[in-house]
Amino acid sequence: MTLHTINKSPFESRILETCLRFTQEGDPILFIENGVYAVQSRSRFSPLLESIRLSNPVYALQPDLAARGITEILDGIKTVDYEGFVDLVETYKVNNWL
């Protein structure tokens, strides 16, 4: 399985959609940097995220959420710190989508 990282907001880039065409069921997806805007609750992308979550574990980098003042995130999204990011990298191969 492969860890996919997304570093751009879905409002500014279509990279999340591109990434989803390549992810396999069960592949973890980690949102970092501006990518964390995807996991905000009640956004235009909430339904998409809800459907991803059914087949793939979804993570968001907590320091990047905090830096952007995002406190309300969708249910079932796990937050990780940098050490959690490292653990994911240790466990899975990595594909950084830019």
Partner: peptide, 13 residues
């Protein structure tokens, strides 16, 4: 942010 993310990741690793 890339330089900062890379550094913090390296540090944590």
């Amino acid at each position: 942010q890339a330089s900062d993310t890379a550094y913090k990741f390296a540090e944590a690793a």
